[in-house]
Computed example of a mutant assay.
Amino acid sequence: MTDANTTAFTNPSTFILLGIPGLEVAHVWISIPFCTMYVIAILGNFAILFIVKREPSLHGPMYYFLCMLAITDLVLSTSTLPKILAIFWFNSREIDFSACLTQMFFIHCFSEIESGIFAAMAFDRYVAICHPLRHSTILTNSLVMKIGLVILLRGSILILPCPLLARQWPYCRTNIIPHTQCENMYVVRLACADTRISSYYGLFVLYCRIGLDVSFIILSYIQILRAIFSLPTKDARLKTFGTCGSHICVILAFYIPTLFASLTSRFGHNLPRYFQVFISNVYLLVPPMLNPVIYGVRTKEIRNRLLRLFTHKGTKAFSSGVGPQTDLPGVAGW
C-alpha cells in the first residue's frame, strides 16, 4: 500500500478502498449494524414489491410510486453494501477502475432517482388532498409510468457526465480512496489535473436534487397545508395530515443525511475523516432500510396484508376485498 502511494502511474487499473480510515480495527464490529441494515433493506423492500404485485387492490398510483422507491433502494444498497462488507470481513479493498466508475454512477444516479420519486410522491399527496375527486383521473397509471420514465432518464442523464469526466482525468499520485465506496468527490480528488469542472458539475447535480426537488416538495406541502387548514374540524385536519406522515418521515431521513454528507465532503476539511465517511454511509444505507419499515408500519393497507401473509388469518375478509375506508378518495396510505 505504501508503494501505491509513492509510485507514479496514469489511469490505474485498480483503486484501493480503505474502508473507514482510522477505524480499521473496528471494521468487523462496524460490519454488524451495516449487515443488519442491508438484510432489513433487502427483506423489507422485496416484501413491499411482493405485496403490491400480489394484491390487485393495491395496483394504484401511490403504490406504483412505492414500488419504484423499493426498486431504487434495492439497487442503491446493493451497489455499495456487498463491497463494504467485503472490505470489513475479508480486507478485499481492491476495485477495478471501470467497476469503481460504474459504482459511482449507480450511487449518484439512483440517489437522484430517489429524490425524483419523493417529488412525485409529493405531487400524488397534493392531488389526493387538494383535488380528491379528480385523483384517479389526473394520476392515471399511464401518467405514473411516464413520470417514472422521466425520473429515470433525468437521473441517468444528469449523472452520466460524472464518471465520464472522472475517466478522462490522469491519476498520477495515488490510487487509494479513503472511503468505503467510489464517491465522485473522493475519486476526483485523486486526479493530478484541474478538476474544477467536476466540482462545479457536482454542485449543479446537488442543486438539482436538493434545490429543485426540495423546492417542489415544499411548494406541494404549502398547498396541502392550506387545504388541510381549510377543513372544518380538528379531527378532519389531523386525519388528513396523518396520511402524509410516512412521506414526511422518509423525506427527512433521505435529505438531511444527503445534505449533511455533501456539505461535509466539500467543506468539512477540519472534521475527522472517519466522521465524513460514516455520514456518507448513513445517507446511502439508512433510507433503504427505513423506507419499507416506515411504510410497512404506517400504511394500513400494507401492514394488514403483511400481517395476513404471516398469520394466514382473515382470508375471508381479504378475498372479499374488504379494506379500510377513508373520507377522501385517494388519500389513504402514505
Rank of each mutant, 00 (worst) to 15 (best):
P56D: 10
H59K: 15
Y64Q: 13
F65V: 02
A70G: 02
I71L: 15
I71G: 11
L74I: 08
V75M: 09
L76M: 15
S77V: 15
T78F: 12
S79H: 07
L81N: 13
P82D: 01
P82T: 04
L85H: 06
F88M: 03
F90R: 08
N91T: 04
S92W: 11
R93V: 05
I95H: 07
D96H: 11
F97V: 03
C100N: 00
C100E: 03
T102W: 10
Q103G: 02
Q103I: 01
F106E: 13
F106W: 10
I107T: 09
I107A: 03
C109R: 03
F110T: 10
I117N: 00
F118I: 15
M121A: 12
M121R: 09
F123R: 10
D124S: 10
Y126A: 07
V127Y: 08
V127P: 07
C130L: 09
H131Q: 13
L133F: 13
L133A: 11
R134A: 12
S136Q: 07
S136I: 03
I138Y: 10
L143R: 15
L143D: 02
I147H: 08
I147K: 09
G148C: 14
L149H: 12
L152F: 12
G155E: 12
I159Q: 04
I159F: 08
P161C: 05
C162M: 15
P163E: 01
L165T: 01
R167E: 11
W169M: 14
P170Q: 06
Y171I: 14
C172K: 08
T174N: 10
N175L: 03
